[in-house]
Amino acid sequence: MSNFDPPFTPEGTLGPFYPGVFALSGLPHNLNEIAPILAHRPAGQPVRIFGRFIDANRVGVPSLIVEIWQANTYGRYRHPLDQSALTLDPQFDGFARIRTSDDGSYSFSTIKPGAHPLRDGSTVMRAPHLRFTIFASGIDRLVTQIFFDDETLNSTDPVLNCIADPSVRDRLIARRVSEGEYAIDIVMRGEGETPFFDDWAR
């Protein structure tokens, strides 16, 4: 492979005027729904994730867009490069797009993702996690991953353990508040700032 970079198009901010109709229609808002009023049942444990996006002044960030991507309950992604023998669920795509409310809050329903080997055949396991891609006025695209506080694999997850400080690592771990309900706030900047990842690194 060549080390020469093609002329990549620079990323930019979403700006304040992203049409609400794009955020609110066309793509799913929950990951466990295929269409309204359709009797279907993706395999796995239904869970709801909720919280707030907060800025440096501890104020909620409204109209922020989050795209969520995850494995199904068996730990399999609906992705052409996921060639593992784990089961694909015909009723689970693993993608949704949501928009925060005026107070910065968000909530979505999904199936708790399964753990999976880092790559096919790898002995390193990824703990169950959700992948967040975040867009808003004032920022360029940000990515992070959200974990669950009742999963023992967190202690050996290779992405979570990129973060040296355990108190910073904890900022990516949603806490179980009741059966099937997990809460996590995302702090964009300042005290308690959520760790974000560089997914363009070579």
């Binding site: 800025d55 002044n57 990129c162």
Partner: peptide
Amino acid sequence: RESETRTPARPLIVIP
């Protein structure tokens, strides 16, 4: 002004 309060101050974490 939005950028000042929303852009992470800490560097992005490079996954090995």
